[in-house]
Nucleic acid binder design. Structure first.
Lengths: 353, 353
DNA sequence: TTGTACGCGTTATCAT
DNA sequence: ATGATAACGCGTACAA
């Protein structure tokens, strides 16, 4: 309704001062007498003045460019991009510009970041190799260009904050889940590939839950490269490898798969008709996992809010850049989402804006 | 950086027209020659003009009041209010005002809604009794005051949309979960109270999953009133009632609790030392559930994004009111979140902004 | 059909 | 220490 908010001019008029003085007090720029300061502050308190954010944006001609760099599995990136797209739609009208660079190798990512240096006011990066990106990140920081990480952290750099998953905790909840759904004693096979940092944490977290558990015996890790999840890329050899694990271990009760080869494992489990005997758990929601979740060949996947990983870092970084927002946390850890057949549809390309 | 966005004036200058003409084209207000229209449209397309949202807000003196009404368990409302608080902080600077009315009875809720009619530009309501609120909602709509529902829908009214949980689906995923974690054949006891609409849907959904399942026998529903979740309010009689269910059914494998008496059930299960034999599943995350989840007396609860139920409806309604946003959907269904011990902390008062 | 001119609330520059 | 004034980009009433 017409609950007209009071403005700086209103205050000025009421106190017989000029707008400039009020402005000085509000944004404490100094050069104002103690008494007047107090008078103004009191008035503001009493009449609950709210600065008009629109007018602020306008006057400041807020206009900033955020660079985004990542080297991630295509389908996963797509989910993050949905979040980026939404926040862009929301904030472009307030002066947000984006430069998005998708790398197809780590070397390329480094080059792309370097190239952005002169073009952006802030950087948001998912460093493929954190250790090898630290110094580059720090260079940005030295030049007063804020950097935040998402999806993958570079904790040893001077980035402002990390927005993403705690992969160790992700491993723990998988452990809890497998404990809860695996009905009888037996073996659990871990599938991973050893040059995968993320997978390594997921395995460690898993161990941390299951180590005191004598009910299950953990075998592996068995190495399966996930070919970035491309269904066709798996060879008969890959299939046989999984098959052999199943055949060699008649008391196998579950697969714990930390990379995208979850698709392969599910396929083999299904083909061998082992769906009811062997539980399958993995991570993230890729298109080729969906049918297996629907048939309950895959019992559950743990997700990590990919949408939010795109949406929030941009939003927060924008506020830092144009409104001097102070960030209180150095880590924003995304929720660990347990996705089963019946809530699957809420996690597959699902968002509100 | 200085990627200055182009403005209406820029366009006007470039095409030797006045700003008004450009404005007419952009907001197609008519009264503009076909050719000029095309010229302008082309130019806009080529130079990707983005309207400056801040300037728009400012010029329109956007200032609107949204009324919020609910009659909900206190602790649940608190979680929703966190979302409301955040969106208020975000939008108050753009002219958003809120009138929040918490009722302590349905009759009071109706009164409060009526009283708001003359004071708000839009209404957001969680109707305790949808059927008895329909006509009131429709009165708002007739007077051009948009109404949206949250947490509880009034599908037969003319509300613009509902933002909240699908309680039937929530029952289904509980069913799936209980199937997955209940190791051996036996009984599952349902706890509810029959005047609870939400609980009724949760029970129906549960049945829809478990009806073809011969492995488990469902008993109940047993009626337990939840005293709005106040721990002290449970009597010895309540305790004995749960106890008796356990004693009478030695092959009881799980409790499925659809109201806040989940606390009571968990307490009794724990006290009787039945934690490992009897699974316990319920809904929402109330403070007095937490310790039981940590000890795995309660195996899981299903949550429904309470934070989002506060945040998004306000945000969307605001955009409808001040920016004529069109709403494409009539339902925004919140995710069903599976909360276990290991991801508990992400769902208990957890948000990013 | 098109153009002019003022105001929205704030910031910033230049006087006093 | 305080005040006047011109932007910022857009909407709108009014004039041509």
């Amino acid at each position: 309704m017409e609950m007209k908010n009071i403005t700086i001019s209103d205050i000025a008029e009421a106190l017989n001062l000029s707008r400039s003085t009020i402005d000085r007090v509000i944004n404490n720029r100094g050069s104002v007498a103690k008494e007047t300061q107090k008078k103004v502050l009191d008035y503001i308190e009493k009449n609950d003045y709210k600065p008009n954010r629109a007018a602020k944006h306008l006057a400041k001609m807020t206009n900033c460019t955020i660079g985004i760099s990542y080297y991630l599995p295509e389908k996963f990136a797509a989910q993050i991009k949905t979040g980026i797209e939404d926040v862009y739609q929301e904030l472009k009208g307030y002066g947000l510009n984006l430069i998005i660079k998708e790398a197809s190798s780590f070397a390329e990512q480094i080059d792309q970041i370097k190239e952005m240096k002169s073009k952006v006011d802030g950087l948001m990066v998912a460093p493929w190799s954190p250790k090898k990106t630290n110094s580059l990140i720090n260079k940005f920081i030295e030049d007063k260009i804020p950097v935040v990480t998402f999806n993958r952290d570079a904790p040893e750099s001077n980035r402002l904050f990390y927005f993403g998953c705690d992969y160790f905790k992700a491993g723990r909840i998988s452990g809890e889940l497998i404990k809860k759904i695996t009905l009888t004693a037996g073996k659990i096979a871990i599938i991973s590939n050893d040059d995968d940092l993320v997978g390594k944490s997921r395995v460690q977290g898993f161990y941390s839950i299951l180590k005191e558990n004598t009910f299950h015996q953990i075998i592996g890790p068995f190495t399966v490269y996930d070919h970035f999840g491309i269904s066709d890329a798996y060879t008969q050899k890959d299939v046989n490898y999984i098959k052999k694990i199943i055949e060699d271990n008649p008391d196998l009760k579950a697969f714990y798969v930390v990379n995208q080869s979850l698709y392969l494992v599910a396929r083999v489990v299904k083909e061998m008709g082992k769906k009811d005997q062997i539980k399958v758990i993995g991570f993230d929601l890729f298109d080729n996992f969906i049918p297996f979740l629907e048939e309950e060949v895959i019992d559950a996947v743990i997700c990590q809010e990919p949408y939010s990983q795109g949406y929030f870092p941009v939003k927060i970084l924008f506020e830092i850049l144009v409104e001097d927002r102070e960030v209180e946390k150095s880590e924003f850890i995304t929720r660990l989402e347990v996705v089963l057949k019946e809530n699957l549809n809420y996690y597959h390309n699902y968002h509100y804006l």
